[in-house]
Amino acid sequence: MTYQFDFSSLLPYWQQFAEGLWLTLQLSAISTVLGFVGGALCAIARADGPPWLQRVVGAYVEVIRNTPLLVQVFLVYFGIASLGLMVDANLAAVIALVVNVVAYTCEIMRAGIESVHKAQVEAAECLGLNRRQTYWHVVLRPAIERVYPALVSQYVLLMLASSITSQISAEELTAVANRIQSDTFRAFETYIVVGLLYLALSFVVRWAFWGFGMLVFTRRRKLGTAL
């Protein structure tokens, strides 16, 4: 069996690849930012909120973490449509990804929050800091620093998982690839290219997070602790 590779037939599509890549990056970036903020709020609610809120957030986290992302994407997309609202596939993709990643972020952040010793909070309160100040300076900041590597992994995973939204025809990299391979009948070559693009993107994202971490976590920078 011999297979003749032919990457040249993909060349005319370079612009579409680039557009797909760009959309993947946008979807991931928006979902990461919203996911982080939402996840942090959920983690605070789950760790220190009133009991009813802890239960609500807990239930949400468990439902999301125990159902497939693809199903969640369909539920959001067709769910919104069946309410009679017109929704853009890209928007539906962002909503689904955010709903998903908030749950995972919540659990990671909660682990960080719970790792902060009670004595730290006591010390802050004894210095006269109020609840909000204590939470921000003494709980949240060290907590985020501690779980940052886990968060980065989660957000790289999110970027890769965004390929699933091709199923509702969000025009990201994988959807573009699906179209190109059906135009060119060069499926193997197309997915090799796409695979390499995802790999490159992962490196870029990891590198960006590393740089951001070095900027924000001064202790890590000064002490040379790995992130």
């Binding site: 004595a119 010390a123 210095l127 800091l129 109020n130 900041r141 060290p142 620093e145």
Partner: peptide, 19 residues
């Protein structure tokens, strides 16, 4: 119970700036 993510100086500055 020093705050591990802050320098000695920042540990001391926290309460005067916040409170």
């Amino acid at each position: 119970n020093l705050f591990p993510h802050l320098t000695a100086e920042q540990n001391i500055m926290l309460a005067p700036t916040c409170v």
